[in-house]
Design a protein around this nucleic acid. Structure first.
Length: 104
DNA sequence: CAGTTGACGGCCC
DNA sequence: GGGGCCGCCAACT
């Protein structure tokens, strides 16, 4: 699997994410056969908002995670997709019910 | 080429 | 339930 190969794969998968749903880094990692850290690394180094809605990728524990262009921006995007974000002790978290289950 | 870091996940305390 | 530690892969220095 080449560099661009992984990127294209992740792009394809992300495009499959239904509106109003999110996925965890771990899910993508499993599909790509890599580690969650690697997924995050690839995304931040290949941020292409025109084709890759990376804001739909969150931590498995429901926390927002990170975003190169500002976590605030990510949250805004998620809410725009109809995803409700709960304020848990000052920490923003996403409800588990918004997690999309990939059907292999 | 080798050591560190980082958009995480899971286990343990 | 919250916080800390280790393991994971890829990119950077």
């Amino acid at each position: 699997m080449t560099k661009v190969g992984r990127i294209e794969s992740i792009l394809k998968i992300m495009k499959k994410i239904p509106k109003g749903k999110v996925v965890s880094y771990g899910s993508l990692a499993k599909l790509l056969g890599t580690s969650p850290r690697a997924v995050g690394q690839l995304m931040k180094h290949n941020q292409d908002p025109k084709n890759i809605p990376c804001y739909k990728v969150v931590c498995s524990d429901g926390s927002i995670g990170g975003y190169s262009r500002g976590i605030k921006r990510k949250i805004r995007m998620l809410e725009k997709d109809g995803i409700k974000i709960i304020n848990q002790g000052g920490k923003l978290k996403i409800d588990k019910k918004y997690f999309y289950k990939f059907t292999l």
